[in-house]
Computed example of a mutant assay.
Amino acid sequence: MTLIVDSETVSAAATAPESTVDAVEATLEDDKEPQNPLTEKFTEAEWKALKEFRSTLPETFKEAFPEQDGAGSTPYNLWGVTISPLKPKDARVSVVLMKFLRARNLNPAEAKDMFISTLQWRKSFKVDDVMKEKFPEDIFGKLGITYGKDKDGHPIAYNLYGANKDLDAVFGDTQRFLRWRVAFMEESIALLDFETVDQMVQIHDYEGVSMSDRTQASKNAASEASSIFQGHYPEFLAKKFFVNVPSFLTWIFWIFKPFLSAATVAKMSVVGSGPKVIGTALLPLIPANQLPKKYGGDADGF
Results as ranks from 00 to 15, higher is better:
5 V>F: 10
6 D>P: 01
15 T>P: 08
20 T>G: 00
21 V>Y: 03
23 A>T: 03
25 E>H: 08
27 T>Q: 12
33 E>N: 10
35 Q>F: 03
46 E>Q: 15
47 W>K: 12
48 K>H: 06
61 F>S: 02
61 F>Y: 10
62 K>F: 11
62 K>W: 08
70 G>F: 02
71 A>R: 12
72 G>W: 04
73 S>D: 01
76 Y>L: 12
76 Y>C: 13
84 S>A: 11
84 S>E: 02
85 P>K: 15
87 K>C: 09
89 K>T: 11
90 D>I: 02
95 V>R: 02
96 V>M: 09
98 M>G: 04
99 K>C: 09
101 L>A: 10
108 P>A: 14
111 A>G: 15
112 K>P: 10
113 D>S: 10
113 D>L: 06
119 L>F: 07
121 W>C: 07
121 W>G: 12
127 V>C: 06
133 E>K: 09
143 L>C: 12
144 G>E: 08
144 G>K: 05
148 G>M: 04
153 G>P: 03
159 N>E: 15
162 G>W: 14
165 K>G: 15
166 D>F: 03
166 D>H: 01
171 F>Q: 03
172 G>E: 13
180 W>H: 14
189 I>N: 02
192 L>F: 05
199 Q>S: 14
202 Q>S: 13
208 G>E: 14
218 S>G: 07
225 A>V: 04
231 G>I: 06
233 Y>F: 05
233 Y>R: 07
238 A>L: 03
240 K>Y: 01
241 F>T: 00
241 F>N: 05
242 F>C: 05
252 I>T: 09
258 P>C: 01
258 P>G: 00
266 A>L: 07
266 A>V: 04
268 M>H: 03
270 V>E: 15
271 V>G: 07
277 V>L: 00
279 G>Y: 07
282 L>W: 06
285 L>R: 15
286 I>R: 15
288 A>K: 03
295 Y>D: 09
301 G>F: 05
